[in-house]
């Protein structure tokens, strides 16, 4: 019994990890309708920055862990956001209004650039982060228990909170209104006095900040990263976002959790080799019956 419980917890955590990256993905998609393939790379840069700033805190003799974490969080989010902004400025803005494919290719190119830039700067080796904190919650007896570390719990909480916060931002604030206007009709939004370029930049900055938060939490959790993690995480997050209905924030979270649970349960009770086949198979099956994902808006065919 505890095995099933533990596998459900494993799936929930993995799902939250996918969801956390997928939220940033889906946010950008929701507003400008482009697949930002470089999002995974931004997340990877977040992971590197997290480790760099933690090490820097060590160099400057910041001993208190909470203080070091706050400093790291602040600078990582800030610099990652600048990366998001610059990527949009250099690779996507010149292509606005040229269909969906040109930015897609440019994004693939950008993701190669970022991967190789980090590899050249930081070296190709896997980087390690020592476990800074290892509190654990355990339920059950000494032999048979279900456990979740505090850090994993934090990931779940942060994913839910970010999902709610961004939903609020999009649904209830002036910025969110401007975002939605930009998404529906860019030219009209422009005519109504919305600086759509600025709105899109802001969306990219928010997306990159989410990637930075994901980068920090996931790096702290697994303790290992390299310049290639963004690619794998990006594909999984993209899958999660589409499964939930791309553009929908609760959908990204839901898609992530379903993906995580299905991978964990399949790996745990059937076979690890085929867990990705199962996850993608499930995706295809869901999309056959709901062609716009679980929570995606059904496409209205205009006549």
């Amino acid at each position: 019994m505890y095995i099933l419980g533990q596998q459900l917890v494993n799936g929930l955590i993995l799902g939250s990890i996918y969801g956390l990256i997928a939220i940033g993905y889906t946010m950008v998609y929701g507003i400008i309708g482009m697949i930002n393939f470089a999002h995974g790379e931004i997340y990877m840069i977040g992971a590197y920055l997290c480790a760099i700033f933690l090490a820097l805190c060590g160099v400057f003799g910041v001993d208190s862990l909470p203080v070091a974490l706050m400093i790291t969080l602040f600078f990582t989010v800030l610099i990652t956001a600048v990366y998001g902004f610059s990527v949009e400025r250099l690779a996507y803005r010149p292509l606005r209004g040229h269909g969906r494919l040109a930015p897609l290719i440019s994004a693939i190119g950008m993701s190669l650039v970022l991967q190789n830039y980090v590899q050249l700067s930081q070296g190709a080796r896997d980087q390690a982060l020592p476990s800074l904190y290892s509190g654990t919650l355990r339920f059950g007896t000494a032999e048979e228990f279900v456990q979740i570390t505090h850090l994993q719990l934090l990931i779940v909480v942060v994913t839910i909170v970010s999902m709610l916060a961004l939903s609020w931002l999009i649904g209830r604030t002036a910025l969110g209104r401007a975002c939605r206007a930009t998404q529906q009709d860019r030219i009209m939004a422009n005519l109504l006095g919305i600086n759509t370029d600025r709105i899109i930049s802001t969306v990219f900055v928010i997306g990159a900040s989410m990637a930075a938060v994901a980068g920090i939490l996931i790096t702290l959790n697994f303790g290992s990263f390299n310049f290639f993690i963004g690619f794998i995480a990006g594909i999984k997050a993209f899958t999660a976002a589409v499964l939930g209905g791309i553009g929908s924030l609760p959908g990204a979270m839901l898609g992530g959790v379903i993906l995580g649970l299905s991978e964990s349960l399949f790996a745990g009770f059937v076979n690890t080799d085929y867990k990705d086949v199962f996850a993608f198979g499930l995706l295809v099956l869901v999309l056959v019956f709901r062609p716009t994902g679980l929570l995606g808006r059904p496409e209205v065919e205009k006549i």
Binding site: I3, Q6, Q7, N10, G11, I13, L14, I17, I218, F222, S224, F228, I229, I232, E263, S264, L265, A267, G268, F269, N271, T272, D273, D276
Partner: peptide, 20 residues
């Protein structure tokens, strides 16, 4: 006897399975 995927970071479900 199972294979994991290179580049994956989460092996918790495999570990739980081995524990079981």
């Amino acid at each position: 006897y199972e294979g994991v995927t290179r580049g994956d970071k989460d092996f918790n479900s495999l570990v739980t399975k081995m524990k079981g």
